[in-house]
């Protein structure tokens, strides 16, 4: 199922956080949204996920208008951000069952999915401990399971590896690849250029609320004449790779 974003914008008081974004994500494709802090990545993803209402523009999942029919659209979206937290006084297993029921999953399907995700993401050793007692890596693995639980058509991942060590980060990267193989569309934001280079099929460079360039990695590099994504990004926003204005 294809995600189509048309003219998405969001204004906070006098600031245009997002100033008109168009993009698409097809099934089985990972699209990276790259930009520095404050570029508008989180705001964009929240609007696409149906959490933050846009000031203008529309979001379609297939033919479904996310903001016109949110109750129908949200079960098709899985959202995960780096700062998403869990209920401190519930266990990971309880969290998964809670959200499965909120997504109106049938009990037998939910039980099977919880068991599968606990095994795939190696949650079993802490599945029945309170979330308040888990490490940040364990919490994020539980969060991935929560976001993937209802088998959404589109996964929206907002800097999911931020503040994680290499081992915990690798769990997420593996999970993302597995979901792409299953045919799910993935919209992935990061400010770590290297992560985008080896993970994304297409990349959108976001700066001050606008997409300044988009395409496959090799296309971006060819257009900018740079050898890596960081330099390509800097050149697109008017800064030389060395840090001085061009």
């Amino acid at each position: 199922m294809e995600l189509r974003v048309e003219g998405l914008a969001r204004r906070f008081d006098q600031v245009n956080a997002v100033a008109g974004i168009d993009l698409t994500v097809k099934g089985g494709e990972i699209v990276g949204l790259l930009g520095p802090n404050g570029a508008g990545k989180t705001t964009t993803l929240r609007m696409i996920a149906g959490i933050l209402p846009p000031s203008a523009g529309r979001v379609f999942l297939g033919e479904l208008d996310v903001w016109a029919r949110p109750i129908e659209a949200k079960p098709r979206i899985g959202f995960l951000s780096g700062d998403t937290q869990l209920y401190q006084r519930l266990t990971p297993r309880e969290v998964l069952f809670y959200f499965g029921r909120l997504y109106s999953m049938a009990e037998d399907r939910l039980t099977r999915r919880v068991a599968l995700l606990i095994e795939q993401l190696e949650i079993g050793s802490f599945a029945d401990r309170l979330c308040g007692a888990l490490s940040s890596g364990q919490r994020q693995r539980t969060n991935i399971a929560r976001a993937f639980l209802h088998e959404p058509d589109l996964l929206i991942l907002d800097e999911p590896t931020s503040a994680l060590d290499v081992v915990s980060g690798s769990f997420i990267v593996e999970a993302i690849r597995r979901e792409r193989a299953a045919g799910r569309g993935i919209l992935f934001s990061t400010h770590v250029m290297g992560e985008a280079e080896y993970l994304c099929d297409r990349i959108c460079l976001l700066h001050e609320g606008r997409i300044v360039d988009a395409g496959r990695l090799e296309e971006l590099l060819a257009r900018s004449g740079c050898r890596n994504l960081t330099d390509a990004f800097l050149s697109r926003v008017g800064r030389s790779p060395g840090g001085t204005a061009s």
Binding site: R46, A49, G50, I51, P70, I71, E72, A73, K74, P75, I77, G78, F79, S81, D83, T84, Q85, L86, Y87, Q88, F99, L102, Y103, S104, R146
Partner: peptide, 13 residues
């Protein structure tokens, strides 16, 4: 605690 955003992702009114 940062859990409100997660709840708002769910298809709930």
């Amino acid at each position: 605690r940062g859990t409100m955003q997660t709840l708002l992702c769910a298809p709930l009114s």
